[in-house]
């Protein structure tokens, strides 16, 4: 659906800032694709390239078969009508009511007045704001404003919805409800959603795939589960810290280190999907003469997949400990010897 090929962008201000460096991305149709990165990573620049608000210096951007960089201004405006966008600060027209804001993209697309009215009612219903039709943006809460933003972005039935930090100005509760609205829309309409954020929790909530952007380059891309379970780069590890990585108290690590000689191993185990329901630990305890001391446990949800984390200390005769670890490996449990970081 969306493809970026070798996209680069440099800003020439008082000093040169290379915001994007040779970015390649493929975003399949109907997916919720997350792009995560820290402030200044180039996320906004990347998403603005997709609808031509920013022109890349090099590379190509193809949206639904259309090469965005080859369009003249008239064609670009037409193409933009098929790409909805929502913003961190909502960017609603203060001079128009909720209904008026949602009508705007329809007006500029030349839709007839009575059709506009029908479509606006439909959209108000979709985002559950029928009772606020005649309110002005200033009278709305952040979450309500973003719902108006979403309705406005969907008015012309776009193929793609771009979200630039769409929930960053909202509290956690409202963030969840807005994200679930996006997920519903994605499921109902098969719309491709590109979501930019600096919070892994947002990605974890609704995204199918994620790309990690740092310093203008894509560090890694993959399914959210994959990235969370097996982060390859330091940047990614840093991003997911606190979300699923456990900070182990130093004393505990000291103890583990001291006790390695007595064949005790401190392990971080990750269970993904159906594995969560398998009694791997208890089976291991039956099979081998080891003891397991569970120090920490957490189970979480990544979109629809359960994801579990355990910090266990396994003690016993050295060969038994080794075999036990080998057994869990066989069972497909993701594990690593615990350290901090």
């Amino acid at each position: 659906m969306i493809e970026l090929r070798n996209v680069s962008k440099t800003f020439h201000t008082d000093r040169e800032i290379q915001a994007l460096k040779d970015v390649n991305l493929q975003i399949p149709k109907g997916e919720i694709f997350g792009i995560i990165g820290q402030s200044g990573a180039g996320k906004s620049t990347l998403i603005r390239c997709i609808n031509g608000l920013e022109k890349p210096d090099h590379g190509e951007i193809i949206v639904d078969g259309v090469n965005m960089s080859q369009l003249n201004p008239v064609q670009l405006r037409e193409a933009r009508k098929c790409i909805g966008m929502i913003f961190q600060h909502f960017n609603l027209l203060a001079s128009r009511t909720v209904a008026g804001n949602i009508a705007y993209p329809l007006e500029i697309a030349g839709v007839k007045r009575h059709v506009i009215k029908e479509r606006v009612d439909e959209l108000l219903h979709l985002v559950d704001l029928t009772d606020k039709a005649n309110a002005y943006p200033r009278q709305l809460s952040g979450g309500q404003k973003q719902r108006v933003g979403i309705a406005r972005a969907l008015a012309n039935r776009p193929q793609v919805l771009l979200c630039d930090e769409a929930t960053s100005a909202l509290d956690p509760e409202t963030t969840k409800s807005v994200l679930h609205l996006l997920a519903d829309i994605n499921a109902k309409m098969g719309l491709t959603i590109v979501l930019i954020t600096h919070e892994m929790a947002v990605i974890q909530e609704i995204c199918d795939k994620v790309a990690v952007l740092d310093n203008g380059t894509i560090q890694e891309t993959g399914s959210v589960i994959e990235i969370l379970a097996r982060p390859k780069t330091e940047v990614t590890k840093r991003m997911i810290q606190g979300l699923i990585n456990i900070q182990i108290p130093p004393e505990l690590l000291e103890r583990a280190r001291a006790s390695v000689t007595e064949s005790c191993v401190l392990l971080k185990l990750k269970f993904i999907g159906p594995q969560v329901h398998e009694p791997v630990i208890s089976a291991m305890l039956h099979k081998f003469s080891v003891e397991a001391n569970i120090l920490f446990g957490k189970i979480d949800q990544i979109k629809d997949t359960p994801f579990g984390m355990l910090l266990v200390e396994i003690c016993g005769p050295p060969d038994q400990v080794d075999q036990a670890i080998a057994y869990m490996n066989e069972q497909g449990v993701e594990m690593e010897v615990a350290t901090n970081g």
Partner: peptide, 21 residues
């Protein structure tokens, strides 16, 4: 607000539409 102008551009408004609307 420049953000509002940007939103209008992202929706495919012509410069005239941005001025008048």
């Amino acid at each position: 607000d420049p953000g509002v102008i940007e939103a209008a551009q992202a929706m495919g408004s012509t410069p005239m539409q941005i001025v008048y609307k």
